[in-house]
Amino acid sequence: MNTPLIQIRGLEKAFSTNDSWLGQWRFKSGKLTRHQDSVHALNGVDLTIYKGETLCVVGETGCGKSTLARVIMGLTEPTKGEIDYLGHRIDHLNNRQRMFYRRRMQMVFQNPYASLNPRMTVYQTLSEPISFHQPGLSSVQLDQKIDGLLESVGISATGSDRYPHEFSGGQRQRISLARALSVEPDFIVADEPLSALDVSVQAQVLNLMMDKQEERNLSYLFITHDLAVVEHFATRVAVMYLGRICELAPRDVLFRTPKHPYTQALLSAIPRLDTTSADPIRLIGEVPTSTKKPSGCVFQARCPYANQRCYEASPAIKEQPDGSSVACHAIEEGRLWK
């Protein structure tokens, strides 16, 4: 449990918003100047994912949680920072060198309607990664393996000749999971895998993911904005805001005593079943887009406790006595949570 599987240090990613060379020129006060605009999706993220745990990343749209997943998977290059897999640095590898790690890390995407190739049967979808990573398998072994995989995700083996459109959303998401499991990874990144599904189907997929974790000692990086799922599924939770982690805590600690003002607002906004629960804490304004590198704390614009220091200096993430880590000046100074 306590072996770090993935370690991320100082990860930054900026996307250029005017990529073309011509788009970078501006005519301003009689002068032609060149400048590059970029969106800072990740602003220095440090994170460790341990073996066998589920780390949930939560946050609003535009906070950089999907970018984090894509950078870890190597689908996007980071601008700065390091990613280690079991102590080996992997972020600067080329495609050939990376192949070994690609097999160990797999991804499940948000939309099961878009992430499966509509022209490939389920058999083809599942056999492609297997025969790519294990070219030595005979066709009989391959067949057996695929049948076993389908059965393990609760889809009958007769379904292997069918196309994705013949399955429901939940079944498709289970096929996506089977595809991720087909190369026997030990780390799966799931980017909002449940958001396109109904409650009852969500339960099916979530149960399956938990079963597989138990069976294979998988580690998950689970990205979601649904806090009810997080409360159920996570080992630890990281709360992200504008490309930074503002709170990282074991699940129980986070849900019992949310510390960061943003976490508090986020938790109070969960639509609970009881009709009597308190009104949500209202955050003023919406998530700003990060075209400028923010000065000071990223949350200052919406924070009810912000003071002068919050506008000037960015808070460092500090560990608290109960095991959570928070980046907030107000907590550090004892204005909140003494």
Partner: peptide
Amino acid sequence: NALPQMTLPGHRLNQI
């Protein structure tokens, strides 16, 4: 019953 808050954290959810 399928809602995550209806089961204890970490337990299997009741699916239909």
